[in-house]
Design a protein around this nucleic acid. Structure first.
Lengths: 237, 237
DNA sequence: CCGCACTATACAACTAGACAAGTGATGGCA
DNA sequence: TGCCATCACTTGTCTAGTTGTATAGTGCGG
């Protein structure tokens, strides 16, 4: 008489099966809760309970207002000794796939000015980017460059789409890392949205300064990695 | 669980922080709503809500078609015996500009005649003007001058665009403030439109009489300041 | 009786897309 | 030169759809 498994569990099972069989593939949008509700002949809350279960199991990810999506497989990003990335921990422009989210020129904050050894209020170019590997968002980074040193950076950057190339055009052919600092943070809502994480997820934060061969500060930036998708290795192997 | 802060509130906070740290300074144009939306990984409407919040708090000002700008902090406007709009603002490091909205010659009202010590029905020149600083409308003012004393004021005024200069041409080389009265009012629709305020915003109203060195009334006028953009200082330093 | 699963309803928050209205820069033309 | 039409861009507004959350109610089994 009474089903041993709850209604919502059955629905979760059915959706999970659809995902396993490939009916819905990673990144696909699931039908809306309302659609699933009528399809299974239940209330929307029952569907929500099923989706919450799948979400807790990292099988689907929901975005308010947008829908529920099949989650990407939790890929470990191999960040080992062979990764060129490790020599430049902050990875300015060296991610497998980069996406530029913002590019603006504004006054340096006091902190930035101090790091870049600029007068307070000097102009800087700010670049915000998203790094992905195999389509999975891995890192979010923000860099600031002295505008006086690289007046044409915005144009060069929008043309070359590469920070390294843009710096080369600006006369900076090499730069090294002066210092790096590591810490951990909790994702804000917007960071979580961009990295496809749940809010409150852990972020690995690296902050660093790059200088040219003469020791002049060239770039100061911060990168936030999705804590559960990246392992950073420092030195050794 | 962490108390969930709304996404738009987080974005408003972030922008406000950027303003507070000096990344965006008064008068600066903020990135477009679309740019902020991609930067925070959010829909434009969410950004709009954040900006609306900042706008309501008078931290930013938006102009359709132009963009969103960091608001100027309230202008300090010293009130004294020798109050001169342009000089005051120049002293505060702002770029003043006066705009004449209307100029007509008519009979004085009973109140005006009494103030200017004229016979009832004497002719006066009335000037309606708008004062701006750095392009931001600050004040609306109405002045009446005895026409008998300054027959050529309309011509002089339209040529010189400066009240002080026009008075000089009319033989008034100096004038001081005999009295000033302060009060507060609610903006009418037309006042709000001219001052770029919301209808119902608070206006600071000053009414005063200027006299020449012999004590003869020269000008009687009322000025309405945008209450949230101006602070009047009286006496003291 | 209580607790549980589920239903029902309502509203808030966010996304998505479209179009109108206004601004500012540019280039053509008299 | 100066004016003007044009065009890209930006904010304002609207409609519609989606998930998030809160509250209240129902039926059933212990």
């Amino acid at each position: 008489m009474t089903p041993r498994t709850a209604l919502w569990a059955e629905i979760a099972e059915a959706v999970a099966t659809d995902i396993a069989t490939g009916a819905y593939r990673p990144g696909d949008k699931l039908p809306s809760e309302a659609a699933l509700a009528t399809r299974f002949g239940v209330n929307r809350h029952t569907v929500r309970r099923a989706l919450a279960h799948l979400s807790a199991g990292n099988l689907v990810r929901t975005r308010q207002g947008a829908g529920a999506f099949v989650a990407h497989r939790p890929t470990e990003y191999p960040l080992g000794r062979r990764t060129r990335f490790s020599e430049n921990l902050r990875a300015a422009g060296r991610m497998p796939r980069r996406e530029m989210l913002a590019l603006e020129t504004r006054a340096a904050t006091g902190h930035e000015a101090a790091k870049l050894n600029l007068a307070t209020g000097a102009r800087v170019h700010m670049v915000l980017g998203l790094g992905r590997a195999d389509g999975v968002p891995l890192s979010l980074n923000q860099s600031v460059f002295p505008a006086a040193l690289l007046p044409n950076l915005p144009r060069d950057l929008s043309e070359t789409k590469s920070i390294t190339a843009a710096l080369r055009r600006g006369g900076i052919f090499d730069y090294t890392r002066a210092h790096t600092r590591l810490s951990a943070e909790i994702a804000t809502a917007s960071q979580a949205g961009q990295l496809d994480l749940r809010i409150g997820a852990a972020l690995l934060r690296t902050e660093g300064l790059n200088v040219d061969p003469t020791g002049r500060p060239v770039e100061y930036g911060t990168t936030w990695f999705a804590g559960d998708r990246v392992t950073l290795t420092v030195g050794g192997e």
